[in-house]
Nucleic acid binder design. Structure first.
Length: 617
DNA sequence: CTAGCGCCTG
DNA sequence: CAGGCGCTAG
C-alpha cells in the first residue's frame, strides 16, 4: 500500500524532475530533443506503448518506476526508433550478463562495477546516438549566450561528477584488486575525454540521463536484491536529485569501509540488513521529495495567489460591488410585454443569478495551476521554475497508465482534462443542466498556451470574449482573478479593458442596428407584420442577432452561449428599441441610460474561467 | 493625477 | 482590434 502511494507520488515527482529540465534548452538545443519526449499529443501514444515495458516484479523501486511508465517514457516516448532499440539492446545485454552476475554474486563490488560499466556504457551510447542527430540538427542553429552558459555549467557539473566516479572506481578496484572489470569500465569515459571539449555541443539531456541511470540502477539493485550500501548523508539530501549531475556524487558516497566491512560470513546478513535499509531509505527519501515538491507548490500558491485561495465563490469577487445589488428598475418585463405600445419604457426582467459551481473540498482550486503558471516565483531558482512549467510535466496526466490522483481534478485544465470533465459534467456555468456529454463537450478546456507570459495571446482574447457572455463591465480585479496566467501590468490591464470596451461597442452597435430595423419594420409594415415585432425584439438562438453575436464572441462555437446572455441581449435590444421609438436617440447622450441598465446585469463568472485556458462547454 | 469609459478612426 | 482623444469620478 505504501509503495503504491509512493508510486503515485513518485510518478509526479519523476515527471517533474526528469522531463522538465530539458525544457530549459528547448529553444536552442535541438539535440536535447533526442532524449526528450515529444511534446505534441501525437507523440503521446508512444508513452503508452513503450517497447521496453516490463511487468512488475520488483519489490519497491520497480513499483515506483515501472507502472507509471515514467522512466521508460523518458527514453522511448519520443518514438525514436534508434533509441528504443538501443534500450532493448541494453536490456538484452543486462539480462545476458545475469548469469555472470550469479557467479559473482558473492563479489558485490564486482557486480557493482559491472553495473556501473553498463550504466556508463548506456550513457555513452545515448550520447553517441544523440551526437549523430545533433550534427544534423545543429546546422544553422542559433545559440544564445545564456543557454550556452547553462550548458557550460552543466558540463562542469558533469566533469566534476565524472572525476568523482572515477576516483570511486579506483578506490573500489584498489580495495578488491578486481582488475578484470577494468577493461569494461576503464573505457567509460575515454571517448568523452577525447572529445570532451565538444561536450557542450552534445549536451543531451544530461539531467534526465543521470536521473534515469540513477533510478534505473537502484531499481536493478533491488531487483537482484544485492547487498549494497549507500551513503548515509543521502537522507534529507534528495534535493540533489533535482540537480542532475550530483546524482553521481551520491554514488560517490560509498567508501571502502562500508564495503569491505563484510567478510564472507558477514556478507549475507549485512546484505539483508542493507536491503532492508535501502528499502526504507528509498521509501522515505521518495516520500520526502514528494512532500517537498508539494510544499513547494503550496508555498508558491501562498505567495502568488491569495485571492484565489481565499474565496471559492465567484460571487464574492467576480462582480464589482456595484453589481452585487440587483435593483429592479421597474416591473419585470415578461415576454408578453405591451408590444402594442412600444413607447412604454422597457425594463429588464428580473433575471436570476446563475448558481455558482460548487468547489470540491479537497484542495483550493488552482493550487497547482496557479503555482505552475504563475509568472513570478521569486523564491525559486529559474531552473526550478522551468521544472514546474515544463510541458512534459503538464502532460503527465495524459499517460494512460498514470494512476489517478485524487487532486487531479483541481489542477490546470491542460493537466487534468479528464478530472475536470468529471467534476464539471452536467452543470453548466449558467447553472443549467447539460444533457448528453460524450464527444461534444468532452474537453472542458481548449489547450491553449498556458505559460505565464507578459503579453496577451489570442487565447486570452478568446477567453475574454467568452467572459463577455457573463460580464460586460469586468473590473480589473475580476480580470486578474480570471486570467491567472497573465502577468498583469498597467499596459496589459489597459489592453484587456480596451478589449471589453470593444466588445461592448460591437454589442451595442448590433443592438442599435437591430433595434432600428425593428422600428423601421414597425413603421412600414402593417398591423399583421407588426405582430411579429415581438419576435424581432428577442434574441433567441434561432435569430440572426444571436448568430452574429455568437459569431463574434464565440467564433469557434465551442462554448454554449449562456441563457443569461441572451436575456441581457434582449433587454438591451428592447431598451434601444424603446429609445429609438420614442425619439430619445436625438439626445447625444441617449445611450447612457441603456449602458447604465446593462452594466447592472453582469453575472458571476463560472469557476471554469478561473483556470488558465479557454473553457469549452 | 489616474483609471476607466465612450467615441472616432484606421 | 488598437490608438487617440475628451470626459468624468475618485
Amino acid at each position: 500500500m505504501q509503495s503504491q502511494t509512493y508510486q503515485h507520488k513518485f510518478s509526479v515527482f519523476f515527471f517533474a524532475v526528469m522531463d522538465s529540465p530539458t525544457d530549459l534548452f528547448d529553444d536552442s538545443s535541438p539535440q536535447i530533443r533526442t532524449f526528450t519526449p515529444g511534446l505534441s499529443s501525437a507523440d503521446l501514444p508512444g508513452v503508452h506503448t513503450a517497447p521496453g515495458f516490463r511487468p512488475p516484479g520488483f519489490p519497491l523501486i520497480h513499483h515506483l518506476l515501472q507502472p507509471g511508465g515514467g522512466p521508460r517514457r523518458i527514453l522511448t516516448a519520443n518514438q525514436n526508433e534508434v533509441t528504443a532499440t538501443q534500450m532493448e539492446q541494453e536490456e538484452g545485454m543486462m539480462e545476458g550478463e545475469d548469469e555472470l552476475m550469479e557467479v559473482k554474486r558473492k563479489c558485490n563490488d564486482t557486480v557493482l562495477m559491472a553495473e556501473w560499466s553498463q550504466d556508463v556504457m548506456k550513457v555513452k551510447r545515448m550520447k553517441l546516438e544523440c551526437r549523430q542527430k545533433d550534427k544534423q540538427l545543429e546546422d544553422g542553429g542559433k545559440r544564445r549566450e545564456g543557454r550556452r552558459r547553462e550548458r557550460e555549467e552543466l558540463k562542469e557539473q558533469l566533469e566534476e561528477a565524472r572525476e568523482r566516479l572515477q576516483a570511486l572506481q579506483e578506490k573500489v578496484w584498489r580495495a578488491f584488486g578486481e582488475k578484470d572489470e577494468e577493461d569494461v569500465t576503464g573505457e567509460m569515459f575515454d571517448e568523452e575525454d577525447i572529445d570532451g571539449a565538444e561536450f557542450e555541443k552534445e549536451s543531451f539531456s544530461l539531467l534526465s540521463v543521470s536521473h534515469f541511470d540513477n533510478f534505473h540502477k537502484r531499481k536493478d539493485e533491488l531487483q537482484k536484491d544485492r547487498e549494497r550500501q549507500i551513503e548515509r548523508g543521502r537522507e534529507g539530501d534528495m534535493e540533489g536529485v533535482m540537480e542532475g549531475s550530483r546524482l553521481w556524487l551520491e554514488c560517490g558516497g560509498l567508501t571502502r569501509g562500508d564495503w569491505d566491512g563484510g567478510a564472507e560470513d558477514e556478507h549475507e546478513e549485512g546484505g539483508q540488513k542493507f536491503a532492508q535499509a535501502l528499502k526504507l531509505e528509498l521509501g522515505s527519501a521518495v516520500a520526502r521529495v514528494i512532500d517537498r515538491v508539494l510544499r513547494l507548490y503550496t508555498e508558491m500558491m501562498d505567495h502568488s495567489s491569495p485571492p484565489a485561495a481565499i474565496s471559492f465563490h465567484p460571487s464574492d469577487q467576480a462582480s464589482p460591488d456595484t453589481r452585487k445589488t440587483f435593483p429592479l428598475l421597474g416591473p419585470p418585463l415578461s415576454t408578453n410585454i405591451n408590444s402594442s405600445h412600444p413607447n412604454l419604457p422597457l425594463h429588464h426582467p428580473s433575471l436570476t443569478r446563475p448558481t455558482p459551481l460548487p468547489h470540491p473540498p479537497l484542495m483550493p482550486p488552482q493550487l497547482f495551476s496557479r503555482s505552475l503558471h504563475h509568472p513570478q516565483l521569486p523564491h525559486l531558482a529559474p531552473s526550478r521554475k522551468d521544472y514546474l512549467n515544463s510541458d512534459p510535466f503538464l502532460e503527465f496526466s495524459s499517460h494512460a497508465s498514470f494512476p489517478p490522483l485524487p487532486f487531479l481534478g483541481h489542477l490546470d485544465p491542460s493537466l487534468t482534462r479528464h478530472g475536470v470533465r468529471e467534476r464539471e459534467r452536467g452543470v453548466r456555468g449558467d447553472g443549467s443542466i447539460r444533457g448528453g456529454g460524450g464527444m461534444d463537450g468532452g474537453e472542458l478546456y481548449l489547450t491553449c498556451h498556458v505559460y505565464t507570459q507578459e503579453g496577451l495571446s489570442p487565447c486570452h482574447l478568446k477567453k475574454a470574449k467568452l467572459m463577455f457572455f457573463y460580464t460586460r463591465y469586468p473590473s480589473s480585479n475580476t480580470l486578474k482573478t480570471y486570467f491567472p496566467d497573465v502577468k498583469f501590468n498597467r499596459c496589459v490591464t489597459s489592453q484587456m479593458i480596451k478589449w471589453f470596451s470593444n466588445f461592448r461597442e460591437f454589442f451595442y452597435i448590433q443592438m442599435e442596428r437591430f433595434a432600428r430595423q425593428a422600428v423601421r419594420d414597425a413603421l412600414t409594415r402593417d398591423g399583421a407584420a407588426r405582430m411579429g415585432r415581438e419576435n424581432q425584439l428577442r434574441v433567441g438562438r434561432d435569430t440572426e442577432l444571436y448568430r452574429i453575436l455568437n459569431m463574434h464572441y464565440n467564433k469557434s462555437n465551442v462554448y454554449q452561449v449562456p441563457e443569461r446572455f441572451i436575456e441581457v441581449s434582449e433587454v438591451a435590444l428592447r431598451e434601444f428599441y424603446s429609445a429609438i421609438w420614442t425619439g430619445r436617440d436625438s439626445d447625444p447622450c441617449w445611450k447612457k441610460g441603456i449602458y447604465k441598465i446593462i452594466c447592472k446585469l453582469d453575472s458571476p463568472l463560472p469557476d471554469a474561467f478561473r483556470m488558465p485556458g479557454c473553457p469549452v462547454g
